[in-house]
Computed example of a mutant assay.
Amino acid sequence: MTQTLEHLLADGDRLFQGFFEWLDGQYDEESGGFYYARSSKRSGRFTPDIESTAQALNIMDRCDLLERWSERRKQAAVRFFQERQDAATGFFYDADPNMRLDGVMVGRALGYSLNALRRFGAAPLHPLPRQSEATPEYMASVAAYGDWLRSISLSNSWRGCDLLSSSAAHLLALTPAEREPYVNEAFAYLASIQHPDSGLWGEGSRYVQISGTFKLHLFYQRFEVPIPRQDAIYRSLLETLREDEAFDMCYVRNPISLLMSMRPSISAAEMLEIAEVTLANMAKLKRDDGGFSREIDHSPPAPNVAQVKPGETYPDMPAPVLIGLGEVEGDMNAGTQAILIRHALRELAGLPADPLPVAEHLFRDRPVAAE
């Protein structure tokens, strides 16, 4: 069985043919950043953005490709992030003003930027946001925090659980004594609304609920608390893989990431089945340009609302931050997830993370005449 699984995963590596050519083509020599998709670059309407650039660097780091970069490119990446820090607030922003309206996206940009700068031994140019400025009103008291938790709609489990999980950073900023009543409030509430049979949270399709449960599992992990009903969650995950259509790369990745977090006991037969379904679903999202698309029919032009399907509205739905045209094309978000899936499947299978082949000329300085 192990040998069959090893052959299956090796055969699945063919999905990455052309991927690194696509990734290298997203690089922008002038800014030192990466575009989200080919339409972002070709249309002339967009610029390289924080998330796409950080995700590209994460792919390169995971695939041991940053060592190919010259010192000039590394310093250009440092400038890319430093120039996007706002001196007044300390946060990092893209040019689109709508980004500042999405607290989740602003928080991600801060983490992405700081990690990228640390990777190159650099630091922000300006002081980071003071905790008093970054702390939301709901942290004023345990009662206020509890009210905020109960106010979050879980009609879309993925979006709602993502918002709930975003409070972890604020809880971790407290002292252990201050934090304890907040953490107790959170886990008591989450336990009260977990579906007893499925082990999942919220509403929406099963893939949406699994995606939301994955977000909450990360929250539980931050505080070293075991997630309740793990056996039920695992059964629901297997049933979903077997029976439901995964038309979004997140629906392919989130179950695998949830398995990586939970580390349940997986039989050899189930591991083979999980890998077969996952690779088949990934293949549906592979594009002619060499990349992978977030969604089955196109790449979402505004990733910060990709959790919400057309026609759906929610009180906390952010304004779209457009970074592409939404064509049938590869995008950086999906590419990041495809690499994560590949590494996770090999780890779950107990196999070494053998590197993917990458042409020697890629990720090198380009001749001046070609720029």
Rank of each mutant, 00 (worst) to 15 (best):
Q230L: 02
P226R: 03
F219A: 03
A268T: 14
L259Y: 07
A283L: 08
Y220W: 15
I266E: 00
Q230C: 03
Y234S: 00
A283N: 13
S267Y: 12
Y251N: 05
V277Q: 14
T278D: 05
L279G: 08
A283V: 09
E243S: 15
K286T: 07
L258P: 07
Y234F: 14
M282G: 08
N254I: 07
I233S: 04
N254M: 09
P264Y: 00
E243M: 13
N254K: 10
E239K: 04
G291S: 05
H217Q: 12
L237A: 01
M262T: 04
E276Y: 12
R242I: 02
A246K: 00
A283Y: 10
A246T: 01
R287W: 08
D231H: 08
P255S: 08
I233Y: 02
Y251K: 06
L238F: 02
E270N: 15
E276R: 15
A232Y: 02
L238C: 09
V252F: 09
R222H: 12
S257K: 08
M262G: 04
Q230W: 03
Y220S: 03
S261V: 07
E245M: 11
E239Q: 13
D248I: 04
A283H: 14
A268P: 14
S257P: 10
L279F: 05
R263Q: 14
K215C: 14
R263A: 10
R235K: 06
K286G: 05
K286H: 13
K286Q: 14
I274S: 09
R263H: 11
F219N: 01
A269I: 12
R222P: 04
R263W: 09
L238K: 08
N281A: 15
I266M: 07
L216T: 01
I256Y: 01
I227C: 06
L237G: 01
P255I: 05
L259H: 09
A280K: 15
D248F: 01
F219R: 01
E239P: 06
G290A: 07
M271R: 15
